[in-house]
Design a protein around this nucleic acid. Structure first.
Length: 884
RNA sequence: GGGCGCUUAGCUCAGAGGGAGAGCGCCGCCCUUACAAGGCGGAGGUCGAAGGUUCGAGCCCUUCAGCGCCCACCA
């Protein structure tokens, strides 16, 4: 078997491990994807969503990178000056936590180390262990311009961050204020609203009484966070609530420390919820904070940064964490007889940290910096509404717009050490100096002795600048001029608000244009059952493992094929990736066959008149495939594109095209040469077509054909209208039907492959002609001893049975060996089908409404169908009668 | 409380108002000189439910049910 001497160097199984690393390296080394901002080709730029330096490649990344690489490679082939700009995000919290954990293993607390030394350690960690993901992205075959790799904390981007801050500040769009922030007690930092995830939590709604200070009664309130009552500074009721009207202005006495607390009226209170009275804890609840602002209630902070109770509460509760305190307070209230009823199970949404999933505590964390979003949302909203930014799928536009319309100011101060230090300095008098360069004197009073703000900026503050900071902004670089706006941004919906929306807002304001024209939003990759991948479920698909096992092309293809866009998320299984591997192998083997007789070099299509009908059919099908793939990729329908390739290569090129060409490959020298050129020509275009999705196997095959320097530099195969050939498609379809019908017959009669049968085909002139031309292959493919061709449709059936075809028939010699009973069953089943269809067609044509209102061609087609079924029925009746 | 998506074959999903498709899985036959990671053939669906529009509905409209997301300051 291995003596197929023509292809000694192409084993029958494609081995990606032998191929991929070689090409991945060569593409980068040869600088194919190094962008030239001075080029006069049109620009096509994508910036990679920068993964965290701490990150490892997961399937979500793999999906995004596959899509981006497909777009970039195709754009390059179509003549664009492409730039796919890679890089990483410093990822403030995530990275700080990783390094802190590592230090703790060494017995070091970051606070002992001090800020500077700690940050130094993080940098060291970054250099040593960070960026593993970059190598992993390279393994996927990503055609990034690695010479332009950036990091959100490199020098240029730090300059961009400061410039952005200063410009926003000077425009009055950044301010400092004391607000309640979303505090993560584990990470010990404030978070923006977008970094808080609301999850349903099973809690208890506890109702208890506050006694009125004047002893005339009590008022009941309910809460799920009972410990916060230690910081209550008021009770609120609705102003129109008659039940409580007389109490407004009175005081209640705090049961633990005897403080007098006023009852106030505020419209926020819902009369119909619970008792209609609300305890107010301004320092630990956003609503309560707002009520306090309106009614003048004081703030009472009862929590430390780690969410244990502070000095402000009675001694017995001090130092308890919030959950312990919740119990302790309940017990005390119970003792005092103030608990009103059994506590009720109650599910409610609680904010959690998007990094560590601790429950968020609303907390006063001192002065914080905020972005005043009202000055930014308008243009970002307009850009989406008027189509300067287009979302794919479109349905994401609405939530995006709605989000902008309801946006609250963005807290950008983070109480961390790893990140961009806020470029604000304070003098002893408390004046604020905001500057992009480190100032030496207070901008207001000129005094020296400035101290910089201790906090760093939200990671997303720097990532929002990514589409232009990476191109050199704020400097007016050639890169910025050429590649901004970017062509497209590819990302998952989970960071639509966190990242995408902010890039648009900041891009509009700082650069004056949208950051990208298209936003392609893909779903979350899930397992086959639609479950999120998680370590605990053990259903995580590790892309690197998959690449080891099946190759990067296989992974890429299966991801592209799975990304249907219709549904929200994307199910992926190892079997699907295996399918991708099989497909690469199929292509490989098709190439082996073509190459067996291929002389090498660029294929030249023989003149049309020398082509067989099968070849013209193949060319026509290829054009259909190209057209379909083009349309699909233009609209970011990656699954459809992948599907179209798969179908063409497997079901058309291999199953029919190659099978029919085998005859010619074994024929005369001229025939073999022509066939080789046709196959080479079709294959070469197919390789170019598939290259953006499966770059490795296509490049490898292309090279083995000696087509040129690199497929990466080849041009995109444009569809050739002249190759579309309806006649060839129609007549070849008859041959396909003939072959398939005979195969079915053989299978139904259990005729072994060795047993050859005799078939006589009757058809109209055109169909007879094509069968005649392709007879040799029809004989081989359907296992015939003899293929006779006759004109007309003489109903002479002695000793033969008939297969009805659209446009003809095939008679099979029974030769006494066939199972009569099996044949009767076959015919009866067929007859039943025909009768059912016949009845349906008859009914339709008897319907006056149908005749009157349906389009003429539809009615005509129905009539033809009826006539055909009529003929088939007669034929079947005759055959059954003959069987006796 | 708003909003979005989904419901079609055993599984995962495509389906452009005129006879329900693919991949995987399953069954049968085949190691036929590109490929057993393969070839050939096959079974399998009252398209979530109920109404409506239409000559004609998986597709358009309404309602309902189930599943899943996102947003939201009812303690």
């Amino acid at each position: 078997m291995s003596e197929s001497a023509a292809t000694p160097e192409m084993p029958p199984q494609y081995d990606p491990a032998q191929v991929e690393p070689r090409w991945a390296e060569a593409w980068v080394e040869r600088g194919y994807f190094t962008a030239d901002p001075g080029s006069d080709k049109p620009a096509y730029c994508i910036v990679i969503p920068p993964p965290n330096v701490t990150g490892r490649l997961h399937v979500g990344h793999a999906l995004g990178r596959t899509i981006e690489d497909t777009l970039i490679r195709r754009a390059k082939m179509r003549g664009f000056e492409v730039l796919w700009l890679p890089g990483m995000d410093h990822a403030g919290i995530a990275t700080q936590v990783v390094v802190e954990r590592k230090l703790r293993e060494e017995g070091i607390d970051r606070r002992d180390l001090g800020r500077e030394a700690f940050v130094e350690r993080v940098w060291q960690w970054k250099e040593q262990y960070g960026g593993e993901i970059v190598g992993q992205i390279k393994r996927m075959g990503a055609s990034c311009d690695w010479s332009r790799e950036r990091f959100t904390m490199d020098e240029g981007l730090s300059k961009a961050v400061r410039t952005a801050f200063v410009r926003l500040y000077e425009a009055g769009l950044i301010y400092r204020g004391e607000r309640l922030v979303n505090w993560c007690p584990t990470d010990r930092t404030g978070l923006s609203d977008s970094e808080v995830e609301h999850d349903e939590v099973e809690g208890e709604l506890v109702t208890f009484s506050y006694p009125l200070s004047d002893g005339t009664g009590s008022i009941q309130v309910a809460t799920t966070r009972l410990e916060t009552m230690l910081g209550d500074t008021g009770i609120a009721v609705h102003p129109g609530d008659e039940r409580y009207a007389a109490l407004v202005g009175k005081m209640v006495k705090h049961p633990f420390d005897g403080r007098d607390i006023p009852i106030v009226a505020d419209h926020h209170v819902d009369k119909d919820f619970g008792t209609g009275a609300v305890k107010v804890t301004p320092a630990h609840d956003q609503n309560d904070f707002d009520i306090a602002q309106r009614t003048g209630l004081p703030l009472m902070n009862i929590l430390e940064a780690d969410a244990t109770l502070n000095e402000a509460v009675p001694a017995e509760f001090r130092g308890l964490d919030r959950y312990e305190a919740r119990k302790a307070v309940r017990d005390r209230l119970d003792e005092l007889g103030l608990l009103v009823a059994e506590e009720r199970p109650y599910t409610h949404a609680v904010g959690h940290c998007y990094r560590c999933h601790s429950e968020i505590e609303p907390w006063i964390a001192g002065l914080q910096w905020f972005v005043k979003v009202s000055g930014l949302t308008g243009p970002a909203r307009e850009a989406a509404l008027d189509g300067r930014v287009r979302f794919t799928p479109e349905r994401w536009q609405r939530p995006y717009v709605a989000w902008l319309e309801n946006l609250r100011d963005w807290n950008i101060s983070r109480q961390l050490w790893w990140g961009h230090r806020i470029p604000a300095w304070y003098c002893l008098d408390g004046h604020v100096t905001v500057s992009s360069d480190d100032p030496t004197a207070c901008a207001e009073c000129g005094s020296a002795g400035l101290t910089q703000d201790e906090d760093v900026l939200d990671t997303w503050f720097s990532s929002q600048l990514w589409p232009y900071s990476t191109l050199g902004w704020p400097d007016e670089t050639p890169e910025l001029a050429k590649f901004y706006p970017n062509a497209v941004l590819v990302t998952g919906y989970e960071i639509l608000y966190l990242w995408v929306a902010r890039m648009i807002m900041s891009g509009m304001f700082l650069v004056g244009d949208v950051p990208f024209r298209d936003v392609v939003i893909h779903g979350l990759v899930r397992d086959q059952q639609g479950r999120k991948m998680s370590k605990s479920l053990g259903n995580v698909i590790d892309p690197i493992e998959m690449i080891d096992r099946y190759g990067a092309d296989a992974l890429r293809f299966s991801l592209a094929r799975a990304a249907t866009g219709g549904q929200q998320d994307i199910p992926l299984s190892e079997e699907a990736i295996e399918g991708g591997r099989n497909f690469a192998n199929k292509l490989w083997n098709a190439a082996r066959l073509v190459m067996r007789d291929y002389p090498g070099g660029e294929p030249v299509l023989p003149p049309m008149e020398r082509l067989t009908p099968a070849e013209r059919w193949l060319l026509s099908r290829q054009e259909a495939c190209l057209t379909e793939v083009d349309a699909a990729l233009d609209e970011y329908r990656f699954s459809d594109a992948a599907q179209a390739m798969y179908r063409f290569v497997w079901s058309e090129f291999c199953d029919w095209g190659l099978e029919f060409e085998k005859g010619r490959l074994d024929g005369s020298d001229e025939e073999r040469k022509d066939a080789g050129q046709v196959l080479g020509w079709v294959l070469e275009r197919t390789l170019r077509l598939m290259h953006p999705i499966m770059p490795f196997v296509t490049e490898e095959v292309w090279q083995r054909f000696g087509m040129g320097e690199s497929l990466s530099l080849a041009s995109w195969p444009e569809a050739l209208r002249t190759h579309s050939d309806n006649d060839a498609e129609a007549s070849f379809a008859f041959v396909q039907e003939l072959v398939t019908a005979i195969r079915q017959f053989r299978s139904q009669h259990n005729i072994p492959p060795k047993q050859k049968i005799e078939v006589t085909v009757g058809a109209d002139d055109d169909h007879r002609a094509i069968v005649e031309m392709l007879a040799e292959r029809v004989i081989r493919m359907s296992g015939l001893s003899e293929l006779k061709i006759e004109s007309g449709s003489a109903v002479k059936l002695e000793g033969r049975t008939r297969l009805m075809l659209a446009g003809g028939h095939a008679d099979i010699a029974l030769a006494g060996t066939l199972d009569v009973e099996a044949e009767r069953q076959r015919l009866e089943k067929k007859l039943a089908d025909v009768l059912e269809s016949h009845a349906r067609a008859e009914k339709k044509l008897a319907n006056q409404g149908f005749l009157a209102k349906a389009a003429a061609d539809v009615v005509g087609a129905e009539r033809e169908k009826l006539a055909r079924l009529e003929a088939e029925r007669e034929q079947l009746d005759a055959q059954l009668a003959e069987l006796g």
